[in-house]
Design a protein around this nucleic acid. Structure first.
Lengths: 191, 191
DNA sequence: GATAAAACCTAGGAAGGTTAGGTTTCCTGC
DNA sequence: GCAGGAAACCTAACCTTCCTAGGTTTTATC
């Protein structure tokens, strides 16, 4: 008699992502998610093993969305164009989906990381952007780490309101892209 | 008759910091902290308003320790020397005190931030490091944001095991310092 | 329309956060 | 050296969240 919610693992994960975007990944809770569906807490455990499993599912979903955005942005570009497009897509994703972005920071089982095509796509795309600068190893790896660190740190700081100065955040972001491009072009390859 | 634990707001906060370093800031819990003191949960509420208050206290304590480390490292240095010393102190703090470092990322009330001398010291010290490069505004602010982002992002990624490649993490860190120094020296001041 | 799978439920236990209100220890001033 | 009060600490109780066990209802399939 009661209308069913029509739950499924995917729909639960999708709703969990929306909840995370609205309330923060830390506030993604089984109870809140059940309330959102108008369902008892226990009902969710038919679709998801437990909270940790749910968080991993959201993280993997986030990886897919992020990978799609990044690869689409970089397609057909190289050098600074690719870097700028990558950076824009990265920041846009973090701003549009703060909860999913937090989810991408979840520490995943190395097995899962290795076996997840979306995670690998993110890595491959990042690699391609830096590869255009033609750095030899280990500078290439170091440069990738520089980009990942800066992008991640910036969006993280921005998301938590860490930039209080009056300077427009977007303008700083653009200037930093310029600086990173410069750093990659003039990378000092040590002995 | 029973020996008292001799609790005080400061001792509670200090122990909370140690617990955070051992178990992670997210696992800093009133119950676990009470167990550590051999005391009932409720006893802690005489010294700390609630969990959120405890977390803020740990964050402020972390700010003090970090500020001490950073200012001491930079004292009497300028240019790349100061940058390298700042970076080393930053990373050392994050590695030695992972829980306190996480605490520094807690979103604090802007009033508290403005009124906290230690937080301001961190900002002042960062400012001084960048000031040596003589950049005009707004490049100066952008450069500060670049450094904060990269340091924060790198240590964050390192802490969560984000660097899986075989390249030594410390070497990447050193190379990135070089790259940042180069970026600051050759900052392109746009119209 | 019967049967099986899937969706959903109730009941309940464990753990953490928190409050109310009481008891014990300690310190201070006389 | 001892009252009196402040501070440290307790028990009891309640709420929320995570989670399991086991039962009931809906849906899909033949």
């Amino acid at each position: 008699m009661m209308a069913r919610a029509g739950l499924t693992a995917d729909r639960v994960t999708e709703a969990a992502g929306e909840l995370a975007d609205e309330a923060g990944f830390d506030n993604l809770t089984v109870s809140a998610l059940a309330r959102r569906f108008g369902v008892a807490d226990a009902s969710l455990y038919s679709h998801v093993r437990n909270l940790q499993d749910l968080r991993v599912r959201v993280a993997l979903r986030a990886a897919r969305i992020q990978a799609d955005a990044l690869t689409a942005a970089v397609a057909g570009k190289a050098g600074k164009d690719a870097l700028a497009a990558f950076a824009a897509a990265y920041r846009d994703f973090a701003l549009a989906h703060p909860g999913l972005y937090e989810a991408t920071q979840l520490r995943l089982d190395p097995e899962i990381v290795a076996g997840c095509a979306d995670v690998q796509r993110i890595f491959t795309t990042t690699n391609a952007v830096v590869a255009a600068y033609g750095l030899p190893e280990p500078a290439h790896t170091d440069a990738i780490r520089l980009l990942r660190s800066t992008f991640h740190g910036f969006t993280n700081l921005e998301a938590r309101g860490g930039f209080q100065a009056s300077r427009d955040v977007r303008s700083s972001w653009d200037a930093i892209i310029d600086a990173l491009d410069s750093a990659l072009r003039h990378w000092q390859v040590s002995p």
